[in-house]
Amino acid sequence: MSTVLEKFKKYRKPGYYDKFDYHWTMSIDLDRCTGCEACVVACQAENNLPIVGEQQFAMRREMKWIRIERYWEGEYPNIKLQFIPMLCQQCDQAPCEIACPVFATYHNQDGLNTQVYNRCIGTRTCAVYCPYEVRFFNWFTYEWDEPLEQQLNPDVTVREKGVMEKCTFCIQRIRQAKDAAKDDGRRRVRDGEVTPACVQSCPTEAMVFGDLNDPDSRVSKMARNPRGYHVLEELNTTPSIVYLKRVHTDG
């Protein structure tokens, strides 16, 4: 059986990402993930996600760049529940990028699928094209009850009405790490120097983040794990998130 990394290399355009400096990738080990949702609040705090309120939540307009999905198997009493964190998969061949009429979402040189708020005109086509349902639309300009706005992260834009948004792999942290590397006189960021908020918070260390172009990085090693797979692999979106299947024992 080929590992997900080998499949990944087969499907993507040869050489395309290799010439880039980095290829940011995340691995999520479902055998470690407990569904505790520390990552969800970490993301909320880091990325200035608004509180949409009960009414908007009921209309499924919640803003959660990362969420925990649950899947049941079997029936009582032989029932199992499994969690899977779902966030932007930073696909190399991203359906959302094809969808956008104004090129507000595009692929950058770090292998990131990015969203430019200033360009976005809010057609919401990308959200429709996204098979992972991880794009979120600002139906309103959300307010923060005073003084909650004092918490807002100055490194991240507060989005306004009419703009689509999604996980950025905490690009502000990547930028910071690159900046620190430059100050050190290094051309490259070392493995482990960038941790997105969710990865940082994860108690079980289910998530690992790093550069797939570096074969010795922790995340590259995880991607070579035989348990690795991509969600909805058959769509050939070649995501940058490698999930590691949960280990099942009988019982």
Binding site: N108, L112, V116, I171
Partner: peptide, 11 residues
């Protein structure tokens, strides 16, 4: 380097 990438300056 990457001076024209949107996310170099936008946040």
């Amino acid at each position: 380097v990457n001076g024209r990438d949107c996310w170099t300056c936008h946040k």
